[in-house]
Structures are given as structure tokens and as C-alpha cells.
């Protein structure tokens, strides 16, 4: 067991934030509240990434999910709500099948979690944590992962052009 220090306090604080807001997504009936809870949850995950030394991934998470996708989602929800004049509420549907899938998945994850020894895996590069990730990430992207990087770039460009074309119609 690790001694409780400032670091783990922050860790548990953000973990609690993620869990509580994730729970709120499930429990609230108002879609807009759910979207905002998702925002808080994603922010908490980003903070956990930063705390674990993956600062670039944490910030990319905020940029892509919160700055991009979530704003778009909230925009959509807000416009539909205001047109109808009443909040969109969710309902419980397909209770049986979702219950089965949910319990199955969580049992599976729980089994992995209980049987796996997480700390000190050989692929965890302890030295990389100390010196920060950006430079290594950049070099890796431009050498080992150049082909997927370029493919993603082309795909994004196609999506951009297609989006502009659709907007023009």
C-alpha cells in the first residue's frame, strides 16, 4: 500500500469527479445535463492523464473531446430544445438486453482488473515520465508511425472537403 500523499489525494479527487459525473449521466433525465456531466467527466479523465505524466494526451483530450465534439453536441441539443420549447428527456428502453450487456461487460472488466498486476509492467518506460512526452511523441509520429499519421491526415482532409461541400448545398 502506498502512503496517502498529496499526489494520491489529487488522484482520488479527480477519480471521484469522473465517477460522480459519469453516474450523473446515467441518472439524470435531462439530455443537456447529461451532456454537461460528460464534459466534467472527460475533463476529469484529462486531469488524470496529466497527473500520470501524459500531459500531451491529456490536453489533446480536452482539445478534441471538449473543445470540439462536446461543444457540437451541446449546440445540437440546445437548438432542438429551444425549438420545441421543452427539455428533451430520456427514457429507459430495452431494459433486459442492456442489463445483460452491462453486467457482462463489467464482469469481464472486473475479472481483468482483479487478475492483472498493473504496476511495473515491462513496457512502462519509467525514464520517459521524467522528461515529458512531447519530443518523443513527435519523433515517433514522424518515423515509426508516419504512414498511419499521413493516412489520418488525408482522411481528415477528405472529411473537411466533404463537410464544406455538404454545407454548400
Amino acid at each position: 500500500m502506498q502512503a496517502i500523499n498529496f499526489y494520491s489525494l489529487i488522484f482520488y479527487g479527480f477519480s471521484a469527479l469522473v465517477l460522480v459525473s459519469a453516474l450523473n449521466i446515467l441518472l439524470t433525465k435531462n439530455v443537456l445535463y447529461a451532456a454537461f456531466s460528460l464534459l466534467v467527466s472527460l475533463f476529469g479523465v484529462a486531469a488524470l492523464y496529466v497527473l500520470m505524466g501524459a500531459d500531451f494526451i491529456g490536453i489533446a483530450q480536452i482539445m478534441i473531446y471538449i473543445g470540439g465534439i462536446l461543444v457540437l453536441m451541446i449546440f445540437g441539443v440546445m437548438l432542438t430544445t429551444k425549438l420545441k420549447g421543452e427539455p428533451i428527456l430520456t427514457q429507459n428502453r430495452n431494459v433486459l438486453s442492456s442489463l445483460l450487456v452491462g453486467t457482462g461487460l463489467s464482469t469481464f472488466l472486473g475479472l481483468i482488473f482483479s487478475q492483472f498486476e498493473w504496476a511495473n509492467r515491462p513496457w512502462i518506460d519509467q525514464t520517459a515520465l521524467a522528461e515529458g512526452s512531447i519530443r518523443k511523441l513527435g519523433i515517433a509520429t514522424m518515423t515509426d508511425f508516419l504512414l498511419p499519421f499521413e493516412l489520418i491526415a488525408i482522411m481528415l482532409l477528405v472529411a473537411l472537403v466533404a463537410g464544406t461541400y455538404l454545407a454548400k448545398k
Partner: peptide, 21 residues
């Protein structure tokens, strides 16, 4: 946040958008 400095700055102010919405 020395390593990611300006990237963090540009990212965190997008929360502004959420607040305005």
C-alpha cells in the same frame, strides 16, 4: 506546464465557449 505550455493555453480557453453556451 512548461512542456506543453502554449498548447495548454489554447486548449483551456476553449472552456470559455462552453461557459458562454
Amino acid at each position: 506546464g512548461a512542456q506543453v505550455g502554449v498548447f495548454y493555453l489554447l486548449t483551456i480557453i476553449t472552456f470559455d465557449v462552453v461557459g458562454i453556451l
